[in-house]
Design a protein around this nucleic acid. Structure first.
Length: 1015
RNA sequence: GCUCGAGUGGUGGAAUUGGUAGACACGUUGGACUUAAAAUCCAAUGGACAUUAGUCCGUACGGGUUCAAGUCCCGUCUCGAGUACCA
């Protein structure tokens, strides 16, 4: 029997699907283990070999845990809302629902033939089925399958993952987003109680307001919330009460400064902006005030920080979350303004330097700017504010060195000295951080120092024995305060304490912890996202009762904003909520009477036009998997209490401050609500590294179609070899030039073999432009230049897992992806190396079977057989536990090499070996298992037990080194004592030869390890 | 600028608490089989000199600790990732 991997893999993939081999049970006496992958966004381009890396690792781990007797939950789904499907919809009018479905399910049937619904009558393939939409292909074309969307599911299935597909979720499926909407409602109906440090039902807040107003309530709320008494509260209208409650709810509607991306027509969260432009598309972003839904994630800032200590996540990831949350300790201080009742509140981490203040700076957007500016400064200030508002985020970031600012004409008053302090505005002060205002202490802060120098503002020195004539002094450790009244002579720490104490005495400030983290904007002006379960009565948002969820995304004519600038849902004609019949009805039924208290009120109100952001659906999917079919609850308490949390989460590090922060926030909220038993949902997280491509370049002589092999180009640029290279080139081209210029051009990597040799005929056929190309060779070959780059279509270095599975099999692919290197590390893909793991599998196969069938027998295993097996068991087990998958693959190779050399055919060895291999190469393992006579899948066979007794050695090859350099080895019995070893080694002729008559100063003997002779 | 991470053969990478550097694989070279190719198998493969056993140099660079350093300590360089006026 030969190793027919295509047949074997198809057979077992079918078997697993039909037998639901990997279905996890929610009721089990076994111990649970939850292995989770970050679910993919299904794009039409499909998978390249870099994508499944993490999935293969997690799959190996999941399979291993099954062998170890665990009940393993290993689900998969799709993060299927998102921009690309919507952009495609805008261009073509295709409903994103349809394109998303195609991207997941593909356009091929089980036999690999295109489904008839995607073929036109003339045999041409419908555009929506094609990967490249501008291409046209017909089913008569030989390679038409290469151009059509295969579908994520089909591609994943080919790799042989042990997912429990019965639990699949798609974030764009109403049955799923019902629960996203449901959580949104729970957040809306909650507030954050600081005293209890947890979220509570909004009703408890209302009760408190009714009894005592808000002055005794310690809650997280908007900055500008005003105090009121119980009498005030009870006298407020319903609408006024609702407006106040919005200032406390964990998700709330408020006018906020947002990042507006005109090109995408939507707002973006901070983590969706990279280097001042949108993460998707790279479009400019500007600041703009808009009424938006926000999530009060800031309430959880401290707990999000503290929680990081409890989880086993990579340090760089924890660091970036810590930086993103940006905790800093300091104080607020209030400065009065002369001739005005206004006060400016500032946040500072250096209250000890308060006597060094020589000016104040407000952000240009600060609300007091327009109120305090004097008449003669008005024009200048307004011009500056306007100019800053126009600058995009990117421009502002681009020149941080230019110092700009304007004097407002107003003066503040120092809380202690009562001295006047000029108030400036400057764009180095950010509106969004702290209070948007700073007390500028030029002697202690470099930015304030630079600003003061630039505008000739005095720089008083409040540090003892420090020269500030050139730069500000910011070293806290050596700070001694001077010229500062009651702070004189104090160190940084003591001065901070004292300054805060004095501020509190004056009622002008207090100690404060500030976070960089902002509340998260939760509205997007897009179509392809979760609709909000919200309608508006008299402009106030109302939640739809959870019983009527999901509120399904309405169909629209076009996916662009409306003419009046409303989000795409503004195009929907059936998008109003009938509160009497609890259903979505035509917009026409919304009457002007839809105002509270009107007797013409028909109970039909407009629905929210924004949709939720991309991270909404991914913030709770890991819990939903536990009970994804549940239609009554987000998950049953039985399910969540059994599965608890994720034991291993594998995914890319690009989600560090997005998904991984938001999902922790929702988890903590659900924990507060008693819905989940753990306030951190993933115990261990691993970021898999990126797989890069190995691009191939050909050198084209500029302006010609002559391609010169790498060696000759290298010689040409080498002064020593230049002459001979030039002669060769002149001869070959017949051009007779003195100077040649070569342009490296990407060639498709599939045209290059393992020795970097170009398939010239293939290259000519690849693009019509090259059909008449000429090649100048070395040793009869055209050698390409190789370079590691990111995998991308435009670089022609993309390798798809399908073609690898086709040619070498999924098991070879799985092994090779692991063999490339450590999981967390980024590494280049080079298809050439896959022959290594592929021939390993063939060798493994030949250990069990040959052309006559079974080779295995019931012979007693030899000592060597057992030793090989057990050292493999030990190493593989340790490697998997440490996520060191690359070294296990080597271990398997060594094992098979040894057993082949030992001509081992013993069942007692080959059976456990099949189980060891099965997590990595499940298809071949299943087939061998069946050949061995088993009727059940190998998936739940118990992992072989390691027996150390087989590894006990009686002797050791001791390395004998002289002054630390190993010179020879000597086999000695392990029971030999230190003294005996020393005596034997010293007596050895090779030792004497090394010493050449010298007497060693010292002989180090570490029994079982090494002998080192010094001197 | 700041914060992390990483530098080992031609290539991907091994090296468990400091103890035989380069496992395993790719590639390369030579050989067997074949009309030939593929596949398979065997041998060599860090560098230099000697080529028969031998010697020296080698884990980015410069120091240090130690009987012994890829591994620990100090300094320098290079590359990668994240972040960026955060008061």
């Amino acid at each position: 029997m030969i190793y027919d991997f295509n047949r074997i893999e198809a057979k077992w993939q079918k078997y697993w699907a039909e037998n639901q081999t990997f279905k996890a049970e929610n009721n089990s006496s076994k111990e649970k283990f939850y292995v989770l992958d970050m679910f993919p966004y299904p794009s039409g381009a499909g998978l390249h070999v870099g994508h499944p890396l993490g999935y293969i690792a997690s799959d190996i781990y999941a399979r291993y845990k099954r062998h170890k007797g665990f009940n393993v939950l290993h689900p998969m789904g799709y993060d299927s809302f998102g921009l690309p499907a919507e952009q495609y919809a805008i261009q073509t009018g295709q409903h994103p629902r349809n394109t998303t479905e195609i991207n997941i399910e593909g356009c091929l049937d089980d036999r690999g033939n295109i489904l008839s619904k995607y073929v036109n009558e003339d045999g041409s393939i419908k555009n929506q089925a094609l990967i490249e939409k501008n291409k046209s292909t017909s089913i008569n074309d030989e390679n038409y399958r290469d151009n059509i969307i295969k579908g994520y599911r089909r591609q994943l299935d080919k790799i042989g993952f042990s997912f429990d597909w019965s639990r699949e979720v798609r974030t764009s499926n109403p049955k799923y987003y019902k629960w996203t909407q449901w959580i949104f409602i729970q957040l809306f109906n909650s507030w954050y109680n600081i005293d209890l440090d947890k979220a509570e039902d909004i009703q408890t807040l209302i009760t408190a307001f009714e009894k005592e107003g808000n002055s005794t309530i310690n809650a997280v709320c908007d900055e500008n919330t005003e105090a009121f008494s119980s009498e005030d509260w009870n006298a407020y209208s319903y609408k006024e009460q609702q407006e106040i409650l919005l200032q406390y709810r964990l998700t709330y509607l408020a006018e906020t400064e947002v990042n507006w991306c005109p090109a995408l027509g939507t707002v973006l969260a901070n983590d969706e902006i990279v280097n001042g432009v949108s993460e998707r598309g790279g479009h400019p972003v500007v600041r703009k005030k808009m009424t938006q839904w926000s999530m009060r994630i800031t309430a959880y800032a401290q707990r999000l920080l503290d929680g990081l200590d409890k989880v086993d996540w990579p340090q760089p990831l924890k660091d970036s979350q810590t930086n993103w949350i940006g905790r800093s300790e300091g104080a607020t201080a209030e400065f009065g303004i002369r001739n005005s009742e206004f006060r400016i509140s500032v946040f500072t981490t250096r209250p000890d330097t308060i006597f060094g203040v020589s000016f104040m700076t407000l952000a240009p957007e600060h609300e007091l700017v327009s109120r305090i500016t004097t008449a003669d400064q008005k024009a200048e200030v307004e011009a500056y504010v306007e100019a800053t508002a126009k600058r995009s985020e990117r421009d502002r970031m681009a020149d941080v060195k230019t110092i700009t600012g304007v004097f407002t004409g107003a003066f503040a008053e120092h809380p202690f000295t009562k001295e006047p302090i000029p108030i400036w505005i400057g764009d180095y002060v950010l509106a969004g951080y702290g209070t948007g205002a700073v007390m500028s202490v030029p002697c202690g802060d470099q930015r304030d120092y630079d600003f003061a120098k630039h505008f000739n503002i005095p720089i008083p020195n409040i540090f003892e024995g420090v020269d500030i004539s050139e730069v500000a002094f910011a070293d806290k450790a050596t700070t001694v305060i001077g010229n500062s009244d009651f702070l004189n002579g104090l160190s940084y720490k003591k001065a901070v304490k004292r300054a805060i104490f004095e501020l509190e005495q004056l009622g002008r400030g207090e100690g404060k912890i500030n976070y960089r983290l902002r509340d998260a904007v939760f509205s997007r002006q897009r179509y392809w996202g979760e609709p909000f379960p919200v309608y508006y009565v008299d402009g106030m948002p109302q939640m739809i009762d959870a019983a009527h969820l999901p509120i399904e995304l309405p169909d629209v004519e076009k996916y662009l904003p409306t003419e009046t600038g409303e989000p795409p849902l503004g195009n929907a004609t059936t998008w109003a909520w009938d509160t009497k019949n609890n259903k979505v009805v035509s917009n026409d039924l919304v009457t002007l009477s839809a105002v509270e208290g009107s007797n013409k009120d028909n109970g039909i109100y407009p629905l929210e036009l924004n949709t939720m952001p991309g991270w909404a659906g991914s913030s709770q999917y890991f819990n939903r998997y536990m009970d994804s079919g549940n239609t009554d609850e987000i998950f049953s308490q039985e399910a969540i209490n059994y599965w608890q949390d994720v034991d291993l989460y594998i995914g890319g590090n690009e989600h560090a401050t997005g998904h991984l922060l938001y999902s922790r926030f929702w988890q903590k909220f659900m924990f507060d609500k008693g819905l989940v038993p753990k306030d951190e949902y993933a115990k261990k997280l691993i970021n898999q590294g990126m797989i890069t491509g190995t691009s191939a370049f050909v050198y084209r002589e500029v302006g010609t179609k002559i391609f010169v092999t790498k060696g000759l180009v290298d010689d040409f640029s080498n002064p020593e070899k230049f002459e001979s290279a030039l002669i060769k080139i002149v001869e070959a081209t017949g051009l007779g030039k003195q100077t040649y210029a070569f342009n490296p051009i990407h060639a498709d990597v599939s045209l290059v073999n393992s020795s970097d040799e170009l398939d010239i005929e293939g290259f000519k056929n690849w693009q019509t432009d090259y059909a008449d190309a000429r090649f100048i060779l070395e040793d009869g070959k055209y050698i390409v230049k190789r370079e590691v780059e990111k995998m991308s279509k435009s670089k022609y270095n993309v390798v798809s897992p399908d073609s690898i599975c086709e040619e070498y099999g999924a098991d070879s692919l799985r092994l090779y992806e692991m063999f490339l290197g450590p999981l967390e590390q980024s590494k280049p893909w080079n298809t050439a190396g896959i022959t290594g793991t592929h021939s390993f599998l063939k060798k493994l196969w030949r250990l069990y079977l040959d052309e006559n069938g079974a080779k295995f027998n019931d012979a007693e295993p030899t000592k060597d057989n057992l030793k090989t097996l057990h050292k493999t068991i030990k190493k593989v087990e340790e490697d998997i536990e440490h996520f060191s998958f690359n070294t296990s693959v080597s271990t398997f190779m060594i094992c098979v090499n040894e057993l082949s050399a030992q001509k081992c055919a013993s069942r007692a060895i080959l059976e456990p070996l099949a189980i060891l291999v099965s997590s990595y190469a499940p298809h071949i393992a299943e087939e061998l298992w069946e050949q061995l006579g088993y009727k059940e899948s190998i998936a739940r066979a118990l992992f072989p037990k390691f027996d150390a007794s087989h590894l006990v050695e009686s002797s050791k090859q001791y390395p004998i080194s002289f002054n630390g350099k190993m010179r020879f080895t000597l086999e000695l019995p392990l029971e030999m004592s230190k003294e005996e070893i020393e005596a034997t080694v010293m007596a050895h002729e090779k030792t004497q030869k090394q010493l050449q008559g010298r007497t060693p100063k010292k002989v180090i003997v570490v029994p079982g390890k090494i002998v080192n002779i010094v001197g």
